[in-house]
Design a protein around this nucleic acid. Sequence first.
DNA 1: CTGAAAGCGCTTACAG
DNA 2: CTGAAAGCGCTTACAG
Lengths: 342, 342
Amino acid sequence: MSIKKPTISDVAKHANVSKSTVSQFLNRRFDYMREETRERIEKAVRELNYQPNSVARSLKLKSTATIGVIVANILHSFSTQVIRAIEDTLNDNGFSTIICNADDNPAKEQKYIETLLARQVDGLIVFPTSANIELYKSLIDIDFPIVFLDRYVSGLSVDTVMLDNEQALQLAVEHLLINGYHDIAVMTTSLEPHVIPRIERVSGYKQALERFSQPIREEYIKSMEPEYLQKGAAELFELEHPPDAVITGNDLALMEFLKYASQNGVKIGSEVGLVTIDEVAFAELNNPSLTTIAQPSFEMGKKAASLLLERFDGKKSAESNMYRFTPSLIVRKSAEKASVSS
Amino acid sequence: MSIKKPTISDVAKHANVSKSTVSQFLNRRFDYMREETRERIEKAVRELNYQPNSVARSLKLKSTATIGVIVANILHSFSTQVIRAIEDTLNDNGFSTIICNADDNPAKEQKYIETLLARQVDGLIVFPTSANIELYKSLIDIDFPIVFLDRYVSGLSVDTVMLDNEQALQLAVEHLLINGYHDIAVMTTSLEPHVIPRIERVSGYKQALERFSQPIREEYIKSMEPEYLQKGAAELFELEHPPDAVITGNDLALMEFLKYASQNGVKIGSEVGLVTIDEVAFAELNNPSLTTIAQPSFEMGKKAASLLLERFDGKKSAESNMYRFTPSLIVRKSAEKASVSS
DNA sequence: CTGAAAGCGCTTACAG
DNA sequence: CTGAAAGCGCTTACAG
């Protein structure tokens, strides 16, 4: 930049007061300030078009009014929705947000955490991979404000915001059974990296089947990387006793299953019931429209942000809690046998 | 935080050298440093688990290695894609990114710009609303690094990355004509806030019709807020001479048109051809699958980031350029009369 | 009611 | 090859 910006000293000189007084003015502490002084400073600020430098302020105050968000995978629509809620909430409270996408890669996650700490963020909201436990532990030890979202890490005392995954699967299984489907399969992206929601969704699926006295068939459970899911679907329907319904564990699994179904003439609804976790933009438009289990993503993001803000207010710090959010069933046509493809 | 972090002074004491020398070490200037000194500092850094404070560094260097991105509306899939490209590119070059969503609201945009400047971002990538011209002008006057994306602001000398919107419409119109559709309508979200791409898309539509010697019928042009687009579609098909094809100007317009079509039994493809600007996730899955005009969003984001990085390298600064990116036609079934709904 | 001084944690030109 | 000193632009306890 060619022209250098005015500093607090310039304003002080221009208004014929000290830097201290200008600082008081900027921080709206008018208690002991003469009306006339305030006006002089106001004028100087206006005339110089002075903008305070937050970096200097942050250094002195040891607070940047910035928080870091590390999402596991920004390609999930859930992530985008949560991010918007977090940003809105934090922004309303004068905080900025730095978003990072770890791409489900623990090494990337670690690097982002370190960068964000170097930048002195005041707190962190993380969709944790389970690989950086020691790093998290060291943050918790120094009482650094941190909130986990979507996933927990066992053994760590951290406020955590999650979906009630078991209830989600309970809802899905129940809805399919009520609508006359009996052989229910479940498809999720890989369980390999120990991602908690996926594990909970599969175990919730099993529990729901038990509760409704249905047999559990291991061959009805398909967990694999997205690129193999279409193959997994094929295996499902080549079984001697193929399923008559499918629950997809998230939007990426859904896309793969829909591709398989459309390429192989699987009639969703009439032949194979479908319920998917996560609301998607085209749910209404799909033919048949998609019955979904929606996460209250906006509320979840807002809660995570609020937990952090409470910490800054010094309201709490003692114990940490798990906040489970209730999923809701949005009934459309993909889990109804009478659904007619037009 | 309870335990205070070690500073460069702590490291200096621990290693029995001066702060200057530690700073040299941290900045990898080993030219004049004794091997033994380097090792001592290395050890001290390790033992204290020292992490440099970027805020202090930024204050001194007057550079935060952070850039701000202000998108007009993060709900467009184009925005998300561009953001990912920008983040990846900047991250590879050691820069952080702060994302802000102006919600197509000039007042919000202004507030974000001011906040980002106070935080001393090194540059800005903006999808500009046309309402903060004076603010942009003042930034350009002091040679502040800024790049516009998706939209230009006339009269300002700023590097700008945009789609070749006219070519996009040319492709869409041509494809529809080739496939036997003759009465082509266009639907875009409102032209009201003077959003350049929408304006260019409508004028590109007209130019393309002229080029192919087709009549221009003003009643075939529907530009309105998303919530009114379904009504707009209804008006189109209630015309004495209704269109036999529709071009939707972006993903939001597409959604509204698809809702209208599905609720009113409009058979896409066989009855009404459809081409949409912007690739969408479910294009392949829709029935019939959607013929789209894709923006090279990754390349566009990357270019915007690179233009900024070049400025930091001092490579250029003189004149500013407009970079137009070429759209590509992705042929699927929604613009083919023979397309069969399954 | 207002100002002088110290300090936040770094970097760098300069001296030796 | 290394250190003392100044300074980036703020805030705040303290003195008057």
